[in-house]
Write a protein that binds this DNA or RNA. Structure first.
Length: 663
RNA sequence: GCCCGAAUAGCUCAGUUGGCCAGAGCGCUGCUCUUGUAAAGCAGAUGUCGUGGGUUCGAAUCCCACUUCGGGCUCCA
């Protein structure tokens, strides 16, 4: 019997009989591996376990607890979902069902326009578990396009995919469905076959640690002009523990949802009578917001920005000049017809800043001119897109427009990057991701030269800082390239906050000019930039990042003083007055309820410091200190000592609470 | 805007197939308790059951429209 020689990822060699498969290789290595093996990676290509191996191949055996393994499990689970749905809804058809982060989805069209509801999930889940219990094999077959079309005669979306790939249409979304002229299929039973590139787990018995999460609508091929399909999302994992961990993480994320915390901590609300996507800030939320804005102003003042104010309304002519009425009228609130013109709520501040630049003659000596405004704008976001503070219709940008010369552009962007990082770090963000978005030739204005110049300026600024960054080809705004800055939050989620955009469209439209050192008139380049982005959205991100545990300098109440009994109230107020004199936001919670209850309530409000004062403290001029997050209180702390520590934390805007323990 | 779902007291929620005066816990008010580290006791008040219309002898409950919210899709200057 001829033999083949195989190389394992660790470099070791194995010799097997010709015709041996990855499954045979796994068995040759060990029983346990043979049981766990899902697919093989043969010379870099993922293949089913039962494919015969070529001589000399390098083979990696994929087990569940790996990226490739999870991917395969999720992909195979999606097939099981499709099988269940097609069985439960005769006449249903299916479209695309890929693995995604943490799970999978599958899109369906039900007969007679029927839709899924949440109640259907239990039934589908039960059917899927039957299929899994039956340990159905995934049997691969291949057909030429013509026969494939015939096999999928009843499934218009699958046929559309076959036609798309066989006519040479390159499409990453369809890459997992079919590829090239030979179409592959995976058959689980006589009744169920799905078109798929594969590979899949050997049989459905390898699956089962999944949960169907939700039903949703989704457009065919992601285009809102197309048919709306019914999508089911699920999560799937290698083992029970991973699944439980994932579900637990979702619960933890829900606990820090900014909408829940904003409600629980009485920070702000979205009264339905106010209208969708509009928030009112309650005293405690407003206190935090004001501190964020104060800090922003302070930093901009130090950074050489000049502060401006502009109105919330503008004559429509302004937005005709800027071009926004042509491009973005859909996103603007509708016009107000007045006897002297048509007015719109402003959707951005830039045109007004251009008016300020344009007032009077500008000299190159004034550049870079940095105009800054906490500018409130209104955008008519579509109803279905609103999401708490993250997507809102009225919001305030920490907006600046910088007018500079071509020569100044790169330096200006470079110093902006420092500024961005420094400001975001002050709020406790540690990890940043940078992206450079480049020109979309189809949707852009301006010459090649100036795009090149601007893109190079952004690129060189990133390089100069030694920052790693991704490039999003063609993702720029129509008027110029941009750098976006995402932050990673405490539980690893990514949020886009800052943006730095070069613009050579608006200076043109507004015919902005400065007088250069040679006496000639030149057009400035304009940079748009927002650091926090929208204050509202930033507040939401920060709230979730911190899970509501604002550092001392941002906490709406920094210290709560709790007298043990009514007899200690006078002393409690005395302590509170001293703290307030040190500019600490301090509350006294009087002894109307038992101490335990007041401690509980105050802790639930996430107050950084809770002081308990009783007989000993009155006698010795001390306090009992409960540091947020600490296990046990510190007793008999001298008031001056406590105060010095918290005043320092407050003034130095320290990110952590209780970093300095009393001596 | 599109698909699915939800809206009941300040908050979190219960309210069977339509049927007495719409409930609970927390919170609130009052009284008692005077408290040393995560929920004291008793009593009381709380409601346009999101809004408007319809079906019905009768609607929180069924139907329609609208508003707002949640999960997605699309969009995000």
């Amino acid at each position: 019997m001829p033999e083949i020689s195989l190389t394992l990822p660790d470099g070791s060699q194995r010799t097997l009989e010709e015709g041996a498969t990855t499954a045979d290789l796994a068995l040759d290595i060990g029983k346990r591996l043979a049981k766990d093996a899902l697919i093989g990676v043969v010379d870099g290509v993922e293949l089913d376990l039962d494919v015969a191996l070529p001589d000399g191949a390098t083979v990696e055996i994929v087990v569940p607890d790996s990226d490739r393994g999870l991917h395969t499990i999720r992909h195979s689970t999606a097939h099981v979902l499709a099988q269940a749905v097609l069985e439960l809804w005769p006449g249903a058809t299916f479209a695309i069902g890929p693995p995604i982060e943490n799970g999978f989805y599958y899109d369906f069209e039900l007969p007679d326009g029927a839709t899924f509801s949440d109640e259907d999930l239990a039934q589908i889940d039960a059917k899927m578990r039957e299929i899994i219990k039956a340990r159905q094999p995934f049997v691969r077959s291949e057909l030429p396009a013509g026969a494939a079309l015939e096999l999928m005669a009843d499934h218009q979306y699958k046929r559309a995919i076959i036609e798309a790939v066989t006519t040479g249409g390159q499409d990453s979304e369809l890459a997992g469905e079919a590829d090239g002229d030979i179409i592959s299929f995976y058959r689980n039973t006589d009744a169920f076959v799905d078109m798929c590139v594969g590979p899949h787990v050997p049989h459905t018995g390898h699956l089962g640690q999944f949960k169907l999460m939700r039903v949703a609508g989704a457009y065919w091929r992601g285009d809102e002009k197309n048919q709306m399909l019914q999508r089911i999302y699920g999560t799937a994992w290698a083992d029970k523990k991973q699944l439980a961990t994932h579900l637990h993480n979702l619960e933890e994320a829900a606990k820090r949802d900014h909408r829940k915390l904003a409600n629980d901590m009485d920070l702000l609300s979205f009264p339905s009578t106010l209208g969708g996507g509009l928030a009112v800030w309650h005293p405690k939320g407003a206190a935090v917001r004001k501190l964020i804005e104060d800090y922003s102003r302070e930093r901009h003042e130090q950074g050489g920005y000049e502060f401006v104010y502009t109105p919330n309304l503008a004559n429509g002519k302004l937005f005709e000049t800027s071009g926004h009425l042509d491009f973005y009228a859909d996103g603007m609130y509708p016009p107000m017809e007045m006897d002297n013109g048509t007015y719109y709520p402003k959707p951005m501040n830039c045109p007004m800043h251009c008016l300020i630049f344009d007032r009077g003659q500008r000299s190159y000596r004034e550049l870079p001119l940095r105009l800054f405004e906490l500018g409130t704008v209104y955008r008519y976001e579509r109803a279905g897109t609103l999401h708490g503070l993250m997507r809102i219709r009225g919001f305030t940008q920490d907006d600046s427009h910088i007018y500079c010369t071509e020569d100044q552009l790169a330096d200006e962007v470079a110093s902006l990057l420092d500024f961005v990082i420094s400001v975001l770090k002050a709020f406790g963000f540690e990890e940043f991701v940078f992206n450079l978005s480049t020109r979309d030739p189809e949707k852009s204005v301006g010459t090649d030269d100036i795009w090149e110049l601007a893109t190079e300026a952004l690129r060189s600024a990133l390089d100069r800082h030694g920052l790693e960054y991704g490039v999003k080809e063609g993702d720029a705004a129509f008027y110029g390239p941009k750098i976006d800055v995402d932050v990673k939050d405490a539980i690893g989620r990514s949020w886009q906050l800052s943006t730095i955009q070069a613009d050579f469209n608006l200076p043109d439209r507004f015919e902005l000019e400065y007088v250069d050192d040679d006496g000639g008139r030149k057009r400035p380049i304009m940079l748009h930039r927002a650091l926090l982005g929208s204050i509202e959205r930033f507040f939401g991100v920060l709230l979730e990042h911190l899970a509501g545990n604002f550092p001392v300098w941002l906490a709406p109440t920094q210290v709560s003083v709790l007298p043990v009994a009514a007899s200690h109230e006078a002393y409690a107020h005395e302590v509170a007055d001293r703290l307030r004199a040190g500019s600490l936001r301090t509350e006294v919670v009087e002894a109307n309820d038992p101490l335990g209850k007041r401690i509980r309530n105050t802790k639930m409000q996430k107050v950084p410091y809770i002081l308990v004062v009783g007989d000993d403290d009155v006698a010795n001029n001390t306090v009992g200190v409960n540091v947020r997050g600490a296990d046990s209180p510190e007793r008999d702390v001298a008031v001056e000592l406590f105060m010095a520590r918290v005043v320092r934390e407050n003034e130095e805007r320290l990110a952590e609470v209780g970093t300095e323990l009393p001596a």
